[in-house]
Amino acid sequence: MAEISSLAEARGKSRPHADPVPRARWLLLASAKGGSGKTTTALNLAVLAANKGLKVALVDMDSQETATKWHMRRPEEAPRIRLFTVPLEKADRAIQQVDLAEKTDGLDVVVIDTPPSIDEHPIQARLLVERSDFVLVPTTQGLADVESVREWMGFLRREGANAAFVLTRTQRTYGSFQEARSLLLKSGQLCPMDIRQLEDVQSTHKFGVGICEIRRAKGVEDFEGVWDAVCHSMGM
């Protein structure tokens, strides 16, 4: 199966160009496995978008509120990212709040971070999947993680979602890296850029920043590549 494709290729039409007026693009990060790098990926993609001059909203639906704690540490001089902290069980409320913010203040990108229990909330999951332009499914290269997200991708495909896996915390020289790629490509699309296991990436949580905001940090190109692929799939 080919790697990550455009929204038009995935659904047979270009939804963004069909809209009569510009609207925010919704990026949903969701996986049924904990420790897959969802929050780290969400934060860094949101920061990249903000640093490119886009109006960004970050929606934290995880009960641990890791993204919210990160946002509290964000430097005042950093590009603004609007935060919404709403539990997954109230996904409909989160959608309403973000829609209102888009109408009043304007938004370009909405990044949604979800808890690993999203598969246990099918009603809320369907609401979010239906609203999102693209679903990114992070996973490590471990076999247990790969098997878990393959099942979740099955749900997304049945829902007609435009979605792709992204490998995180990778060790590219390990045999499990290529094995994971092969298994994932049998179940769905795969982002052509992976995110390596790097200390600089983990430090973003400590300082409330993104990897692109750390001078000489390693891993910037990883997230840049993922962001470019996501933008292509969302018609941006």
Rank of each mutant, 00 (worst) to 15 (best):
residue 202 Q to A: 13
residue 192 P to H: 08
residue 89 E to Q: 09
residue 1 M to S: 09
residue 23 R to A: 15
residue 3 E to K: 03
residue 218 K to S: 10
residue 71 H to P: 00
residue 38 K to H: 12
residue 130 E to A: 14
residue 94 A to V: 02
residue 202 Q to E: 12
residue 136 L to S: 02
residue 109 V to I: 01
residue 93 R to P: 01
residue 117 S to A: 08
residue 47 V to L: 08
residue 177 F to M: 07
residue 206 K to I: 08
residue 134 F to D: 14
residue 219 G to L: 08
residue 39 T to E: 07
residue 236 M to W: 10
residue 206 K to T: 11
residue 10 A to T: 11
residue 176 S to T: 13
residue 28 L to N: 11
residue 55 K to V: 00
residue 173 T to V: 12
residue 27 L to W: 01
residue 225 G to A: 02
residue 114 T to G: 03
residue 35 G to L: 11
residue 186 K to L: 14
residue 70 W to A: 15
residue 121 H to F: 15
residue 69 K to E: 05
residue 8 A to Y: 09
residue 40 T to K: 08
residue 179 E to F: 14
residue 129 V to C: 10
residue 127 L to N: 07
residue 22 P to C: 09
residue 205 H to W: 14
residue 125 A to P: 07
residue 188 G to V: 00
residue 190 L to C: 04
residue 18 A to S: 12
residue 83 L to I: 00
residue 167 L to M: 13
residue 167 L to K: 13
residue 148 S to P: 08
residue 91 A to C: 03
residue 46 A to N: 02
residue 150 R to Y: 07
residue 212 C to S: 05
residue 9 E to F: 01
residue 84 F to Y: 12
residue 120 E to P: 04
residue 129 V to F: 07
residue 220 V to F: 09
residue 16 P to G: 10
residue 70 W to R: 11
residue 176 S to V: 10
residue 148 S to V: 06
residue 62 D to R: 00
residue 93 R to G: 02
residue 140 T to F: 04
residue 146 V to N: 04
residue 90 K to M: 13
residue 97 Q to L: 14
residue 125 A to M: 15
residue 224 E to L: 04
